Amino acid sequence: MRIAIFTDTYTPEINGVARTLQRLTNYLENNEIEYKVFAPESKAPVPTIPQIERFMSLPFFFYPECRVALPNPVQMKQALECFNPTLIHIATPLNLGLYGLRYGKKHHIPMVASYHTHFDDYLNYYHLPFLQKWIWKYMLWFHRSFQRVYVPSQSTKDKLVDLKFHPDLEIWGRGIDHSYFHPERRTNSVRETYRIKQKNILLYVGRIAPEKEIDLALRTFHSLPSSIKDETHFLLVGDGPQLKMLSQYSNEQVTFTGFKEGDELADIYASSDLFLFPSSTETFGNVVLEAMASGLPVIGANAGGVQHLIQHGETGFLCEPKDQESFTRLTGRLLQSGYKRSAFSVRAREYALSYSWEEIFSDLVNSYNEIMIRNQKRHSA
């Protein structure tokens, strides 16, 4: 098996798609499965790796973490002919994905795709709803040639089934590193670093961007009863287009940390008390799983992939999307009750332990094999 992966976002870019694909290639390498990644160049310097072909790129206009590559056709053709893929996996529908689609069609190579982002939902947050019709037309056209399309959650699958998106949709979930995101990483150094004096730490991790509904998170915090709010510090971790504007409102109880990763991020998770994540546009919600693995109950929106991760009344609470009153009431309830929060914390950690990257990637590779066998039978018939 030789897998060619086409993506417009890849490490060292920091987002759910890039991290998942990096974990996938690590799994392939560890299991001695050949692969080749076609990805945009990064803003940050990266080491040269034989399995990664990079191309000049520009930031995508409303989602700069995803870059639009400017493929060099000669470089692409030479690399693909040398690699001779037996399967093509296209992760994003931009320029690199288009080239991979064209190459796969021309050379009759079995192709699969993965659907990661509801771009149509994002348009409302960037005042571009008039583009929704055209984006869906393009997405339907782009994906019709694939033999299977992978989606991250049941809610995403349900949405695409309703749109008659593709006849073969399969859930490709996400995992978590249980040993890395762990409650035992709790440390007072986080409080010292951010000068936190309050009893409780309320945490948000993710892009600081309109589609993540950061304004709702802030309104929720500021609407808490004084007796609860006075004992709570709100820590917001991440980077994005709204960071500069919103960080102006930092005060002794609200801190925007900017982007954090690695040990520092894992320590922040474990050292917090409650995770608040109001986004209703998630196809999965990786950060929710990271928080739960770290022993945090989660207050999230009853929408998208997040609704499948939170067990309402057991590992956290689900709120109606955009309902500030609901978010405020349930956030306050858990911040006020240390006993209930502790019980939720234990169950959140137990639930996160059921998600295994090894099992998820093993199932994916089995699915790849199934597609290739089906393709061989079709052409030998």
Rank of each mutant, 00 (worst) to 15 (best):
Q253P: 13
V254H: 11
T255W: 07
T255L: 09
G258F: 12
F259Y: 15
K260S: 09
G262M: 06
G262Y: 04
D263A: 13
L265M: 10
A266P: 04
A266G: 05
A266N: 08
D267H: 15
D267S: 14
I268G: 02
I268H: 05
Y269L: 08
Y269E: 02
A270T: 09
S271I: 03
S272A: 11
D273N: 15
D273S: 10
L274S: 05
L274P: 00
L274E: 02
F275Y: 13
L276K: 00
F277K: 01
P278L: 11
S279K: 06
S279F: 03
S280M: 08
E282A: 05
E282Q: 05
F284W: 02
V287C: 06
V288M: 03
P297F: 04
I299D: 00
G300L: 07
A303C: 12
G305D: 06
V306S: 09
H308V: 08
L309I: 10
L309Y: 03
L309E: 03
I310D: 00
H312P: 11
H312V: 05
G313C: 10
T315Q: 02
G316C: 02
F317A: 06
L318D: 02
C319E: 01
K322Q: 13
K322V: 06
Q324G: 09
Q324P: 00
E325Q: 11
T328E: 05
T328R: 05
R333I: 12
G338R: 09
Y339T: 14
A343N: 14
F344I: 03
R347E: 07
A348D: 05
R349L: 06
R349T: 03
R349K: 12
E350D: 14
L353I: 13
S354R: 13
E359L: 08
E359W: 04
I360V: 09
I360A: 09
F361S: 04
F361T: 07
S362W: 12
D363L: 15
V365S: 00
S367I: 12
S367N: 11
S367C: 09
